[in-house]
């Protein structure tokens, strides 16, 4: 018997009586309520204005308040800054040019996928050997959306160009729109699943016999992204006596540009 069959047989024999999966909706509702309360608290307590760059980590509320306060944007900004990220609010991508030039003035190689910055950045050499990215000083990429509860940004390989890029670069900059924020991880996965759902999958239960017997693709499309990651701040370690050091193996710094619509 193959090891596969041995393991599967042993597991089949050992597994207890079937249990149903829990319904996630009460949890999602509770997380939504937490976010709604946070936003409401901010409105009544006249919290600092929603201008992201004006809210340092030490603003009126502590980084991880009990319970959280502030709008989705405020919570995202405060959390990301507390974990070592830098947040900039911009109205046009062209505003980033001078920032890029500062990095280039330090002799850094700057790669970007953004056409608006093509005059001052190198295009990502998609398909080339990732080892050639060793000397990249700054990579500027689009992300899909940010998560307020943990400051993470979801980014997939089509946005990276080369999978290694957001990790090997010395500094990472991600651009998202201020409207592309969700409150919590449940909403994040709802959004990812919606973006990657198979076009031929039924989203509702079948209403006719034909529908019920027509084979459908799995819920998530086979063509969906082969690699995606949540990135929350610069790489870090506290392995030496619990002293937090930014810049372990990945970027030493991370900047997020929030594009105001």
């Amino acid at each position: 018997m193959s090891s596969r069959d041995k393991i599967l047989n042993a597991v089949r024999k050992a597994q207890p009586a079937f249990r149903p999966l829990p319904d996630l909706s009460p949890l999602v509702a509770a997380a939504n309520a937490t976010a709604a309360n946070a936003t409401a608290t901010a409105a009544t307590a006249s919290a600092p204005p929603a201008t992201a760059s004006a809210a340092p980590a030490t603003a009126s509320a502590p980084p991880f308040a009990n319970p959280p306060v502030g709008s989705t944007l405020e919570r995202f900004t405060r959390t990301l800054e507390a974990i070592g990220g830098k947040v900039h609010t911009i109205f046009h991508l062209q505003e980033m040019i001078s920032w890029v030039l500062e990095h280039r003035a330090r002799g850094q190689r700057v790669l970007s996928s953004l056409p608006e910055l093509s005059a001052v950045t190198e295009a990502i050499p998609v398909g080339s050997d990732p080892h050639d990215l060793e000397n990249v000083g700054l990579a500027i990429l689009r992300g899909h959306f940010g998560v307020a509860e943990n400051g993470a940004i979801w980014i997939t390989e089509d946005q990276m160009g080369i999978r290694a890029l957001p990790f090997i670069t010395e500094h990472l900059a991600l651009v998202i729109s201020t409207t592309d924020l969700v409150d919590h991880m449940h909403a994040a996965y709802q959004r990812i699943n919606k973006a990657e759902q198979s076009p031929t999958t039924r989203q509702q239960s079948p209403t006719t016999r034909e529908e019920a017997t027509t084979p459908t693709e799995p819920r998530i499309a086979q063509t969906a992204s082969g690699f995606g990651t949540f990135i929350a701040g610069p790489s870090k370690t506290a392995d030496i006596e619990q002293s937090l050091v930014l810049g372990a193996h990945g970027p030493m710094g991370m900047s997020v540009f929030l594009l105001q619509d």
């Binding site: 996630l24 943990n150 919590h184 991880m185 969906a224 082969g226 990651t229 929350a232």
Partner: peptide
Amino acid sequence: EHLGVFLRLLTRSATGQPITTYSSHFR
């Protein structure tokens, strides 16, 4: 979507961070 539940718990319980810097999904 079950990842949403576990990624909220893992790092908060482990080191008191809201999430790890990287939560990479290899497909």
